[in-house]
Amino acid sequence: MKQLDMEFTSENGKEKHLRMNYASQNLDETTVKTAMQTIAELKMFEIDFANPYAHPVQASYTERTVTPIFSDKKKSEKADA
């Protein structure tokens, strides 16, 4: 599954990422930029009196590959997951 990774710069100049697991897989640049700008303008989140998502920087889809080495989970725990 691809994840949408949106990178912002905070009002304090720190890099922050907002990642979405269930975003559409075919978003275009205009749609994502507009959404990121809206997030920045709404100032929905505040950490230490600063907007962590103040300035949109970039966005990309990322995929994570998990390669198991071992597992001590019981079969019933795997079924619940």
Rank of each mutant, 00 (worst) to 15 (best):
G13D: 02
A23H: 04
D48H: 03
E77T: 04
L27G: 03
K78L: 15
P68N: 06
T38M: 09
T30F: 07
A59M: 12
K2H: 03
V32Y: 02
Y61R: 00
I47G: 01
K33S: 05
N21V: 08
N26R: 07
N21K: 14
A81T: 10
P68C: 02
S10H: 05
P56W: 04
F70C: 10
P52I: 08
P56L: 07
K43Q: 13
K33M: 13
D72K: 15
E7P: 00
D48G: 01
T31F: 01
E41F: 04
L42S: 09
K75H: 10
E63M: 12
A54S: 10
E7Y: 07
S76C: 08
K74E: 09
H55I: 12
K33C: 08
E15T: 14
Q3R: 14
A40P: 00
E46M: 10
S60G: 07
M6Y: 00
P68R: 08
M1H: 08
S76Q: 13
L42V: 05
A23W: 00
L18A: 09
E11A: 06
K2A: 04
S71G: 05
E29C: 04
E41A: 15
P52S: 06
Q37C: 02
A81L: 13
K14Y: 08
Q37F: 02
N51I: 04
F45K: 12
G13Y: 01
R19N: 10
K43I: 03
E15D: 08
P56V: 07
E41H: 08
P68A: 09
M20D: 06
V32P: 00
D48P: 01
M44Q: 15
A54V: 04
S76E: 15
Y53W: 05
E11I: 04
E15M: 12
S76M: 10
K2E: 04
P68Q: 07
A40Y: 03
Y22F: 12
Q37N: 11
F49A: 15
D5M: 14
Q58I: 00
L42E: 11
S24W: 02
L18C: 04
E77K: 07
T62K: 14
T38R: 10
I39D: 00
N21D: 12
